[in-house]
Amino acid sequence: MKRTINLTINEEAFEAEAEPRLLLSYFLRERAGLTGTHIGCVIGECGACTVLLDGRLVKSCLLFAVQADGRKVLTIEGLAKNGALHPIQEAFVQQYGLQCGYCTPGMVLASYSLLRDNLNPTEEEIRKALGGNLCMCTGYVQIVESVKAAAKKLQQS
């Protein structure tokens, strides 16, 4: 039986119907049309579907949309403001922190979650914070460099 699900996605109210078994990742992509949340493994290993739920980093394939009813979701689409990339996104571009881009929304949001709490992370802290996100093309060196560069940008702003 379908249910009405109310979310606040990127600070805007959104309502749609869905079966309880619909995963949040599919709800965001297919109902809300926010395809920046990527579907990778769908078993909670790869982190491509990472979003923030009430401010905490989660994998949206490990949640049914109905579980998020009434909560706030931040997806990758919510980071850029007025057409300007978020400093973390800029840093990923400038430091070549992506190749195919599939893991990037999750990587950027995991970085966002880290840097919100810690503006001066060590390399080990960065690697731990990204531990739930897999990249299958670049390896992690440029991604870690991107997070370091993003931290510098955010310290200055």
Partner: peptide
């Protein structure tokens, strides 16, 4: 345990 996302949930 697991990773950040897993520990949050």
């Amino acid at each position: 345990i697991g990773d950040v996302q897993v520990r949050n949930r």
